[in-house]
């Protein structure tokens, strides 16, 4: 049976894990990008679940849109990453502190 709280919990926990992955990660930008992808995943998962639960197709349309946005975003992000690596020879998060307040 479809339990509202189980599915919601899964998506929220997935979202929180990805936030922690962004925040606690000190080393690798790739991990941050993956966490970002996980966020999109959790959000679209939540949307699909709710569209079936509420019997409304808009959520699935949104999740499809998010899928495309996430794909383009990750491609652009990886491109930026590649350019950054070409310049700095490192993608360690700790060392990307050139712009200070």
């Amino acid at each position: 049976m479809i339990n509202l709280f189980n599915y919601m919990n899964v998506s929220i926990i997935l979202f929180l894990v990805s936030i922690l992955g962004i925040c606690l990660n000190q080393r690798n930008i790739l991990v941050m990008l993956m966490s970002l992808e996980m966020m999109f995943l959790s959000v679209s998962f939540n949307l699909i679940f709710l569209s079936t639960y509420l019997d409304d197709v808009v959520g699935q349309i949104f999740s499809l849109l998010i899928l495309t946005v996430a794909a383009s975003e990750s491609s652009i992000g990886l491109a930026i990453l590649v350019i950054y690596y070409r310049i700095r020879n490192t993608i360690t998060v700790e060392l990307t502190n050139l712009m200070k307040g």
Partner: peptide, 17 residues
């Protein structure tokens, strides 16, 4: 206050959250 802007990406994410 301006020292909060450390330049570290993780700190920014933390502040956003």
């Amino acid at each position: 206050v301006s020292r909060l802007q450390s330049g570290l990406l993780t700190h920014y994410v933390f502040f956003i959250v």
